[in-house]
Simulated assay, not measured.
Amino acid sequence: MTTSRIDRRFAALHSEGRAAFVTFVMAGDPDPDTSLEILKALPAAGADVIEIGMPFSDPMADGPAVQAAGLRALKAGQTLRRTLELVRGFRSGDDDTPIVLMGYYNPIYSYGSETFLDDAREAGVDGLIIVDLPPEADDELCLPSIERGINFIRLATPTTDERRLPFVLANTSGFVYYVSITGITGTRAPDIGAVTSAVGRIKRHTELPVVVGFGVKTPDQAAAIAAGADGVVVGSALVEAVRGSLDADGHATGGTVEAVSGLVSQLADGVRAGRPKAAE
């Protein structure tokens, strides 16, 4: 496939000698308008790549914080079609920042896979992470995505052994997402030494960037992960920042966008501190 925004962004960061900061936010949380404001604020706050969660009623890999964010979004009327509209709204002012949609296959299947991929490409989506589609189902969505120039990004986990890893990597593009813990999102802190070792093992099998997520919540954790990986993903901490900014009725306040962008700025500083800048 042709070079994507994701490829270009990681190449640029590599030349700068630093890891990528990847932010995860839930589409439509806490409401469509505020969600778009949050998205637009992320690049200036320090996000290099943006993952947007596609709300789903049965998110088996998500911890309590991300589940709650999805439920808030669904309650506010978020749909997959509205998520693509959110991407279009972001793209109207930003044609450079890579956008990755992350979620589950059921909403895409209901939408119609081929139609979804065509609409996603038109909206400006660069990549997909679909956590419940294994490599054995690549014909279902992965290969059609690649045909349309959309990166299909796979998850590798602490239980992905040497025999399984080649299957995970076979049709992966953009980057590899390493899940730093076993279990659901945002519930435990990663073991930095184990993560660094796992990233090194994966990189012996692929030239793709390896980014690390699940459990990273603080600038210090982000810095430690960034020292040994090509990127750091933070999600649960950001959706918790949304939740903590809402009023008693669960509605956005004047401080909601700043609660997220301020935390992103702090975390971005951590990521940038984690790897020294390349020599001039």
Rank of each mutant, 00 (worst) to 15 (best):
A259S: 15
A279W: 05
R81F: 06
T2G: 00
G63F: 05
R5Q: 08
T160V: 09
G254Y: 07
L155Q: 06
V49S: 01
P107A: 14
I192W: 00
P32W: 01
A41M: 06
P166C: 02
E37V: 00
D33W: 04
A68D: 14
V257N: 11
R272F: 03
L238P: 06
L80Y: 05
I202V: 12
G174E: 09
D7K: 07
V211K: 00
P98S: 09
R18W: 02
N171E: 14
P158T: 12
Y177D: 04
L71T: 02
R9Q: 12
E280M: 11
V176L: 14
G274L: 06
V233C: 14
G228N: 10
G53E: 06
Y104Q: 01
V179M: 13
P135W: 04
V49H: 11
I146N: 11
M26S: 15
L36W: 04
P135R: 05
H251P: 01
V195C: 13
P107G: 06
V232C: 08
P134C: 04
I202P: 08
M102S: 02
E280S: 12
D48V: 10
G28F: 12
S110M: 07
R148V: 10
L42C: 03
L133M: 13
V242C: 10
R18G: 13
D247R: 12
D31Q: 08
V199N: 04
L267A: 08
A273T: 04
T206L: 12
S15R: 13
A279C: 04
Y105E: 00
Y111F: 15
G262V: 09
E162A: 15
A69L: 02
V257R: 07
A11F: 03
A227R: 09
A279D: 12
D33I: 08
P134F: 01
V125L: 03
R188H: 14
Y104L: 00
A198P: 06
F116K: 02
L42E: 11
Y111Q: 03
R9S: 13
V22G: 08
G174W: 04
P107V: 11
P209D: 00
L169E: 13
M54Y: 02
Y178W: 09
K203T: 01
A227K: 08
V264G: 09
A237R: 15
E16Y: 03
A47M: 06
R243K: 13
D29R: 05
V260P: 12
P135F: 13
S15V: 05
L42M: 14
R18C: 09
E114Q: 15
D126T: 08
D118E: 11
S261K: 10
P59S: 08
D247C: 09
S180M: 10
S4R: 10
D191Y: 03
F152V: 02
I150G: 01
